[in-house]
Design a protein around this nucleic acid. Sequence first.
RNA 1: GCCGAUGUAGCUCAGGGGUAGAGCGUUUCCUUGGUAAGGAAGAGGUCGUGGGUUCAAUUCCCAUCAUUGGCUCCA
Length: 644
Amino acid sequence: MSSIEVKLPDGSVRNYPEGTSSMDVAQDISEGLARNVLAAKVNGVVWDATRTLPQQTNLQLLTWNDTEGKSTFWHSSAHLMAEALEALYPGIKLGIGPPIENGFYYDIDFGEHHFSADEFPKVEAKMMELAKEDNSYVRSEVSKADAIKYFEEKEDPYKLDLISGLNDGEITFYEQGNFVDLCRGPHIPSTGKIKAVKLMLVAGAYWRGDEKNKQLTRIYAITFPKQKELSEYLHMLEEAKKRDHKKLGKELELFTFSEKVGAGLPIWLPKGTAIRERLEKFMRQAQIERGYDQVVTPHIGKKELYVTSGHYDKYGKDSFQPIHTPNENEEFLLKPMNCPHHCEIYKFKPRSYKDLPLRIAEFGTVYRYEQSGELNGLARVRGFTQDDAHLFCTREQIKEEFVNVIDLVMFVFGKLGFDKFTAQISLRDPENKSKYIGSDENWAMAEQSIIEAAAERDLETVTVLGEAAFYGPKLDFMVKDAIGRQWQLGTIQVDYNLPERFELEYVGADNQKHRPVMIHRAPFGSLERFIGILIEHCAGNFPLWLSPEQVVILPISDKFNDYAQKVLKYLKNLDIRGFVDERNEKIGKKIRDAEVNKVPIMLIVGEKETENEEVSVRQHGKGDLGSMKLEEFAGFFNKVLDEN
RNA sequence: GCCGAUGUAGCUCAGGGGUAGAGCGUUUCCUUGGUAAGGAAGAGGUCGUGGGUUCAAUUCCCAUCAUUGGCUCCA
């Protein structure tokens, strides 16, 4: 009787008889684990937990705590929703129903029926009813002919379209209860695991994402193994709404948009500008310490510049159109990128290997004609400022430059309270090398340098093949904000293309001419988007050093305005930003307004304080801290500054 | 760019074929008040813009612009 060998992630090896499934192994380890197993990773591939294992198995049991466990759970939930919809709306045609980052969707052709959000409760109830039946998800391998026959009988054109792209022998169906779907799987063991359901949204989506195709109804939904997790999720969404940077940007008077100025062109109000400038100052300082040279280049450039860079060919027709001058045959473009200008700075004079690495930084404002439907607050705009820099170096220096940029990015994130992040390394698709420019040797070296640099700094990384830009591999930072959402922020990209196009050169130690490598990098990406994310991360409660107004002085009555002004002057001398609320209002009202406006520190001054040269300190969200002498407050202020 | 929703006072929003309303904010006056909203009076709107239907349009229809949710795209 042969047996199979199962190696678990902790390194232990167990032997089981043939026919054992992942679920059996879980059962063998503990009852509790078996209850929680959703799927299994078998030799690196996610499988149904109920499938029997091969002879030699590296096994990782997946639960709700694993990303893959979650997506399997949601994928199965999509089938459950389809089952419910089919029961409620006989004759509907099904498109695709994949899991997504938060939940899943299913694209449905409802025929004549116009499905609306009012019908959500009905569907949710049906799903819960079917979930309670605790039906197993059963996998079966089907021949292409049988698969086609099945869906022809069901008259589902979308599934038939999908099958036509599949090879015979690789087609599987999954069945639960009365529902059968074409599906690669894997799935959770049974519907009973799904304990909470919420339909989120209906939206239109074209079949296969092509607007020439029919528009289907896409239903977004999310499910959980516990009711409590659903409530937590809904609570998080509410929290996200409260933090929305578009809402806070208006309330805190940070920025605005104007129809007259134009869509996607943010206007920075004084308080928002204060934050921006502080961020710029902070970044400039950090860069100067790391050997960057700051430069300034114009907002426009001649068309030829972008023809040389290649941007004109690739993006010219989707950009703001050229500006024509009074003289004939002159055309200028709003700059969509800073790099062409920086290449010209490189070319200003002959460069020696001794000049490298050359690090050129600019807060460069660029303009891109983003599609109208894509514009979104500060997250997607048509004019924005990058904290851009280009590093010109030798091939051998790539790794060290990456390490330096990684250090800079980690320093910046730390200072701004983004302490959870991962890095994504994007390499080229080894199957399709022709898509990329540059020699194999250069690519190998750059990719290796990035991998090593990330390892050297112990970055938690995900490597994705085929995600590199056509001109070089890259590393992107993904940060998690205070309420658990992921954002892509800083980026570092190797570029072999522009040095080629601009014919950049340096003289090597061998007295020969060589081509430098260019690295694009932007820790914030764009200041606009970054501030948007920062607003949502801190819910408008900026760290003290960034806060537009750090302190507000609140006189009890106008008798104490003079003393309040004196305190303000004292603070200004210490480089503390503040103002006096001299309005004819009661102290309760002034405090409330300051709290609502998220001013970090309130100083209340009345008779006692005036007599004793004191201030009564109150911190946003924390309440009354008692009174202090002015010098004492200065110390307290610096302590709070250091804390964040 | 495509599909849907929305657009009324500085802000948040109600209303509805007969030229508009609330709360907050703002202004003036009263009040000089000790840790999250003191009182009174006033000002403020061609109901996003342009057409059309109608005796009459802010309301209905069309177009357009903007915002927003999706889709697609992203140097």
